[in-house]
């Protein structure tokens, strides 16, 4: 892999498609700095009115969980049904709860 210093680093792009929604990862692109990344994101990922707000994060700054941790991370939540409303029984006729 070439690690030439002259190459623009990679940035991950997150876009809020409309007010009230979360920013969502849409892809990545290359840019020399954050400002350029922002503008490139505008030019590349919002050509069809896809966004009202942009976040850019240099890819090397993203820390991702490892797939090897999946069991320890997520499976313990499987048997915690008491966190969900359907776990609790109510007599028929009770409303607004």
């Amino acid at each position: 892999m070439s690690t030439n210093k002259k190459n623009w680093p990679l940035w991950e792009i997150f876009i809020r498609s409309k007010q009230g929604l979360n920013h969502k990862h849409v892809g990545s692109l290359h840019a020399a700095d954050a400002q350029m990344a922002m503008e490139n994101a505008r030019d590349v990922y919002t050509r069809r009115m896809e966004g009202v707000s942009i976040w850019v994060v240099e890819s090397k700054n993203i820390h991702a969980s490892s797939p090897g941790d999946a069991e320890a991370f997520y499976e313990p939540a499987n048997d915690k049904a008491y966190r969900h409303p359907t776990f609790y029984e109510l007599p028929e006729g009770v409303k607004h709860i």
């Binding site: 892999m1 070439s2 030439n4 190459n7 990679l10 892809g27 990545s28 692109l29 290359h30 590349v44």
Partner: peptide, 17 residues
């Protein structure tokens, strides 16, 4: 082209290469 290069880069190879 850009979307596809980006997707390819997730496999551990950069666009320049």
């Amino acid at each position: 082209g850009l979307y596809l290069y980006s997707a390819t880069e997730t496999l551990g190879i950069d666009r320049e290469t």
